[in-house]
Structures are given as C-alpha cells and as structure tokens.
Computed example of a mutant assay.
Amino acid sequence: MPAETVNRQWLLARRPRGQVRVEDFVRRDASLPQADLAAGEILVRNLMLGFDPAQRGWMDDAPSYLPPIAIGEPVRGSAAGRVIASANPAYPEGSMVRGLFGWQDYSVAARAGDPDPVAIPDGTALEEALGIFGAASLTAYVGIYDIGQLRAGDCVLVSGAAGAVGSVAVQISRLAGARVIGIAGGAEKCRWLVEDYGADAAIDYRNEDVRARLKALAPDGIDLFFDNVGGTTLEAGIAHIARFGRIVLCGAISGYNDLQGVPGPSNLTRLIPQRAGMRGFILLDHLDRVPAAMAALRQWVGSGQIRYRTDIQHGFDAIPKTFLRLFSGSNRGKQLLRIDGV
C-alpha cells in the first residue's frame, strides 16, 4: 500500500450551463481508500489521464448511455495507472491498467457491475494505451468498418478529422482504398490531414465554405460520412450524400456546450430520394470487436501505416484547464495529462 494518505480529486461542482468552465469543478483532498478490497477489486495509482469530448455530455443531467456524473463526485474520465493492491488474480500488483478511473490520484476499480479494467501490455507506453490504442481509435475502427460498411473506392468524408477519432478514421479509410476528404479547423490541422495522415483533400471549416468545397471535391457525392461534429457540418454532409450513402454519427461536438442545443439538420428529407442511411453508435455496444480492432491497429502502427499525435499536459492542478482545451481546438492530437510527482 502507498505511504500517502491523501487522494487528490477534481469533483463536478455544478452542472455546466452552456460553455464548460473551470468553475464547474472543485478540487478536494480526500482520504486514500484504506479499507480491505472486496474480492475481485483492485486499487490503482493513476499516472496519466485522457480527455474526450464525450465527458461534457456526462456532466448534464440527461438520459444517455452512461448515467450523469453526480454533483460532488470525481469527474468520470479515462486514466491509466499501476495496480498497487489487488484482490483479483487477473490484475496482479505492479501491472498496468486503463479504465474510467476518473480525475483522482487513486481509484478502486473492477468493482462488481463496473466495466473491467483493460490490462496494458508490457512495452506499451501510457500515452499509447490512452491514445492510439485507446477507445478513440477503437471507436474509429468500429464506426468505419462495422457501422459505415466501408468499401474500396468509396468517397469518404470525415469531420473532426484531425482529432483522436477522426484522424484514425481518415487513415483506416485510406488504407482500405477509399478516397478521403477531411474537415478540420485551421490551416495547420488541414496540412496534417493531407501530408501526415494521407487524406486526398482537407477543408478548413473556419476559413472555407464547406458546402462549396464539397461540391467541388466530391461532384458525385459522398458514399460514407463519418461525423464527429453535428450541426451545420452534418447538414453539409447530408446535402452531398450519394445515392445509397451511409452516414455514421459518432459525435456532435459543435453542440456540446450550446445552452439551447444545436438545431437538428433541416435537410433530413434529402436522405429519402438518395436512399441513404444514418445511424448513431457507441463503442460499448461493440466490445466483441475490440480484439480484431486492436490487432489491426497494432499491425498498422508497427508498420508505420498509421501515424498519430499526442498532446501531453502536466500537473494535477491543470486537469480542468486541460479538459477545456478540447473545446477551443487548442489540443494538438489526443489530449492527455501526466499527473505530477509520478
């Protein structure tokens, strides 16, 4: 057991109203979990945190695929760390794991009814476990292959294409022989898409007319649209969907901080004459696909066919500000934070 007696935590202090703010969180020094672990449980010392836009939705008191984060509870989020006490032979002391351990130094994991922690193989860095081999990449794989039914020769559009999910969606589409167009914010990220990630073209939504560019780049329409943004970007994709096209709804970051909610697409009837389909999905419903996805990702990364970026911030006190980087576009790759002193 550790010599420390304090478990630093960042709690949800209030439900965000519109744009999430640092003031929506409060730091607390709690007592370190000292009680004997129940059978099957483990105590994890968190070393690195991962941040995802979906966490913003978990802060609202609204029905979703996971229950809302309770006021006064540690903020739910991905983390990777070392097992320092174990009542579970599958996770021996000293082994490395990742899971939804939250914004805190120490977490009791593998409780009955909770998702099982994921063992991190020897030789895999924490930034890889939470980044390229984490849930974002697995989401891209399932969304493109299983939900989007990617085919060689497809014209694929990916929004939020420079993000952790989108950048992998771009690359696995390209590897399958698709023509890929990415949408991102700013010239730098658009340059990454073409030069580093292999997209055939990139659209800078901040400085270009997305609909006009799509008309020029995809005159025959989009066969598969992998959308992480929603709002007017989703409308643009619907406007240019090809006959029998597929739209995969992965996220809607454009509306996560909108107090009134982003209006739904006004052109849904376009799907009727195009005989197009649109479907949302959550990775949790497809965990049986994780082994195949992970094997493919490891092969592609090992051979240099997939590239990735990580943006690592530092320090426990910087956790809320690091989360906010996701919504200003400040992050350059998968947003991570290394907890200080470990």
Rank of each mutant, 00 (worst) to 15 (best):
A129V: 00
Q149D: 15
V118N: 01
A187P: 04
Q55G: 07
S303V: 05
L224F: 14
I132E: 01
A54Q: 05
G148S: 10
Y256P: 01
Q335M: 14
G143N: 10
E208N: 14
Q313P: 02
V194Q: 02
G185W: 06
V108G: 09
L138F: 02
R76N: 11
V165E: 07
A79N: 06
W58T: 14
L214N: 02
I120A: 05
A184I: 05
Y256I: 12
V75I: 12
G237Y: 03
K334E: 03
I272E: 07
A176L: 02
G264C: 12
D114P: 08
G102L: 07
H314C: 05
L66N: 09
Y106A: 07
D220E: 15
F101H: 09
I147H: 03
K334I: 04
S266Q: 12
Y197P: 00
G99Y: 08
P121F: 05
G18A: 14
W300L: 08
N7K: 02
A112S: 15
I312C: 05
I172A: 00
N88I: 02
A62V: 15
G315I: 05
Q274W: 03
R289M: 06
D227G: 12
R206L: 15
K334C: 07
Q305Y: 06
A202W: 00
L268I: 14
Y91P: 00
P265A: 11
A295Y: 05
F101S: 02
